[in-house]
Simulated assay, not measured.
Amino acid sequence: MDPRISLVTLGVADLEISVRFYRDGLGWPTGYKAGDGVAFFKTWGTVMALYPISNMAEEVPDGSFRPQAGPCGIVLAHNCRERQQVDELLRMAEQAGAKLRKPASDTFWGGYSGYFSDPDGYMWEVAWGAFPIGEDGHLLLP
């Protein structure tokens, strides 16, 4: 198996609200139209999808999927090219309806980061300084 994550799907309580947050509030590109059952967002890395959480259990009908949006032991991250972008993006997210969970501050690993949660409670870290970012937007790991 190639080491690749192609798509991340977030189960959301209200698809329209979540689409507005990511598309209108954060400016993420999508071809979503009202009435579509799922929204796909093209990023510089993995594709992100929003899907009604009430429908997610139908995808895995053996009962092992327990639909619950929000903080679940996973943190999504957006790494910035410049330190000041962290504060700018946290403000943008807050203005779009996110809840600021931790204001940006210097980190133990020598970077700078802060956290917000989206309308469904999914946690996002906005960070600078951990890894350089390539021309294509991907993190450059050592």
Rank of each mutant, 00 (worst) to 15 (best):
P3N: 14
R4G: 13
I5M: 12
V8G: 10
D14P: 05
L15H: 12
E16Q: 14
V19T: 14
R20Q: 11
R20Y: 03
F21Y: 08
G25H: 02
L26S: 04
L26H: 01
G27L: 01
G31L: 02
G31P: 04
K33E: 06
A34Q: 14
G35P: 11
D36W: 12
G37F: 10
G37C: 07
F40V: 05
K42W: 01
G45V: 09
L50D: 15
L50I: 12
Y51P: 10
I53N: 13
M56V: 15
G63N: 06
S64G: 11
A69L: 04
A69H: 15
V75D: 10
R81C: 02
R81S: 07
E82V: 08
Q84V: 10
Q84N: 08
Q85T: 11
Q85K: 07
V86D: 03
D87N: 09
D87L: 01
D87I: 03
E88W: 08
R91W: 06
A93V: 06
E94W: 00
A96G: 09
G97S: 08
K99E: 04
L100A: 02
R101E: 11
K102R: 13
S105H: 11
T107A: 02
F108I: 07
Y115P: 06
D118K: 01
D120K: 08
Y122N: 12
E125G: 02
V126W: 08
A127R: 02
W128N: 08
G129H: 05
P132M: 01
L140A: 10
P142D: 10
